[in-house]
Simulated scan of single mutants.
Amino acid sequence: MIARWIGTVGGVGYIRPAPGTWGSAAALPLAWCLHILGGFPLLMIALVAVFAAGWWATIQMTAGQSDHDPSEIVVDEVVGQWIALAPLSFAAWDRGIDILAMWPGWIAAFGLFRLFDIWKPLWVGAADRRGDPLGVMLDDVIAGVFAAVGVLIMAAIAHGVLMS
């Protein structure tokens, strides 16, 4: 029961169509709440805790099943989306900026994470092909890292850091 609640993020994973996108969308207000309550450090602590809980829940939910990554498991999307949002949380926390003022970054983080999670380039696809609960979690972690790098590059361009 608790594994299903964690794995589906309180039932979000049962929303159709596109449960992964719904899981990513659910991650946004959760990240905002964590950031408001404790800034970047709390978001990172929650990220590690949810990764561990999600891995455990995925093990429980897929035990004895032929499908190693059922679509209702969306806790991995929450973790990946939080990684994609990490540069925004860090900048807002470090600079004392209202994190919602960075709304273009939120859109970029969401869009890039969904792109890399669906497309599964390079190491994202390799992690997914593991075919085990760790791979379920890791492909979204790596997609989140790719998205976070994309967010940083886009912010650098938008703020003139990469322009002469």
Rank of each mutant, 00 (worst) to 15 (best):
S66D: 12
A31K: 02
I83M: 02
L100R: 11
W56F: 15
G54Y: 13
I99L: 07
G111N: 02
D117W: 07
W32Y: 14
A101R: 15
Q65Y: 13
G80D: 01
A31Q: 01
C33F: 14
A92I: 04
A53F: 13
I118H: 02
A108T: 14
I118P: 03
L42P: 03
V124S: 00
A53P: 03
I83D: 00
A46W: 05
I118T: 10
G80C: 05
F51R: 04
D139L: 04
I59S: 15
T62N: 04
E72R: 11
I97C: 00
V75E: 14
M61S: 00
L85M: 07
A49P: 11
I107V: 13
A126H: 05
P87V: 08
D76A: 04
W55Y: 15
F90V: 14
G38W: 05
T58E: 08
A86F: 12
D76N: 00
G96K: 05
L115A: 00
L138R: 02
L138Q: 04
W93P: 05
D98G: 12
L85T: 05
G105V: 11
L34C: 03
V79E: 01
L115W: 07
D117Q: 08
A101V: 09
W103S: 06
D76Y: 01
R114V: 10
I36R: 09
V50L: 11
F51S: 00
A84H: 06
T58C: 13
A53K: 13
I97V: 14
V75C: 11
P104D: 03
M44V: 10
E72P: 13
S66Q: 14
A53V: 12
W32F: 10
A109M: 00
A49W: 03
W119E: 10
F113N: 01
P41D: 06
W103F: 01
I36T: 12
H68V: 03
A53L: 07
A84P: 04
A86Y: 10
W119V: 02
S71G: 15
I118W: 06
I36E: 14
D140Q: 06
W123P: 04
I73P: 12
F113H: 05
L34M: 11
W103A: 04
G125K: 10
T62G: 07
I107P: 08
A92P: 11
W106G: 09
L42K: 15
L112E: 10
I97E: 02
W55V: 09
W56H: 11
A101Q: 13
A126W: 08
L47W: 10
